[in-house]
């Protein structure tokens, strides 16, 4: 029984460590004064003043919409593109397959934002010719993010495809289906867990991405949550803290929603490898 009590004590300690900063954010969001030095762990009062201020003085919902669109599109498209490539690597045998896999691994090791000067040059040229995909455009950044994510995802998904017995699609082929059909009707449904987990990871990584967004999405209408909220603190670090806290909590909602939505697929995919930061 003593052991159980010790377990509870340890569990409470870990839980407190995990939860305290979040409690702090919630209190700061509700705090009527809404500054950093007024924020306490236990709110002294509750009000929606910070929320109202956030919605009226900043284009918060525009940021929110941009973040959702950018992250959602990036997640969906990069999973789709990666799944195609993963299928080829997993099921086809062709010259250069091994070399392709190794170069994927090596290429994606380059942190994309280190090349921000070349990327800026590329996007300036794109802006001149196709402004829809250039600077300050959602589509341009989405393409850029997909390019940066697709290598990792291909590896992740390919690993899972390899674990799906090849006999299943062979059976489909014998029954007269094309490869495309085998892919769509057998491999993809069975791979739902890994597709869900890589979609979730891309979504989280993208909604948290700050650096590239801060360089490429500077227009008032194009900013994402990361850029917009960072700007709030950069302007008035102390005074805007309450608004920032409200924004933080609202930003957590899509992540949790996506997680909930994908959860039933995720149970198996979770160990496939991922980090957060």
């Amino acid at each position: 029984m003593r052991g159980l009590a010790a377990r509870h004590a340890a569990a409470v300690a870990v839980t407190a460590f995990a939860v305290l900063p979040i409690v702090f954010v919630v209190s700061a969001a509700l705090d009527p004064i809404g500054t950093l030095n007024s924020a306490t762990l236990v709110p002294r009062g509750a009000g929606f003043g910070n929320a109202v201020k956030l919605f009226t003085t900043t284009p918060f919902w525009t940021w929110y919409r941009n973040s959702l669109v950018v992250s959602g599109l990036t997640a969906a498209l990069s999973v789709a593109v990666s799944a195609l490539a993963a299928y080829a690597f997993s099921r086809f045998r062709f010259a250069g397959r091994r070399a392709g896999l190794v170069s994927l691994l090596v290429i994606q090791a380059f942190p994309q934002f280190l090349a921000i000067v070349p990327l800026y040059v590329i996007f300036s040229a794109i802006s001149d010719n196709w402004p829809e995909f250039g600077l300050d455009s959602v589509w341009g950044v989405v393409l850029l993010y997909i390019g940066g994510q697709v290598g990792v995802n291909t590896w992740l998904i390919k690993g899972f495809f390899d674990s799906i017995p090849k006999e299943l699609d062979d059976a489909m082929l014998i029954d007269g289906c094309s490869h495309t059909q085998a892919f769509r009707r057998v491999v993809l449904p069975l791979a739902a867990p890994v597709l869900a987990i890589s979609g979730l990871l891309v979504f989280i990584a993208t909604i948290n991405e700050f650096l590239i967004a801060s360089v490429f999405l500077t227009g008032d209408d194009a900013r994402t949550l990361a850029v917009g909220l960072f700007g709030l603190l950069a302007d008035q670090r102390n005074a805007n803290f309450g608004m920032f806290a409200v924004g933080t909590l609202l930003t957590a909602i899509p992540t949790v929603a996506v997680f909930q939505f994908l959860q039933r697929y995720i149970v198996h995919g979770l160990t496939a490898g991922a980090v957060k930061g």
């Binding site: 839980t15 995990a18 949550l225 990361a226 930003t251 957590a252 957060k276």
Partner: peptide
Amino acid sequence: LIVLPYAMPAFAMLLVW
């Protein structure tokens, strides 16, 4: 409760910290 930090936006929580 322990998984909660994972749901929070990392960029914002880094600034909070």
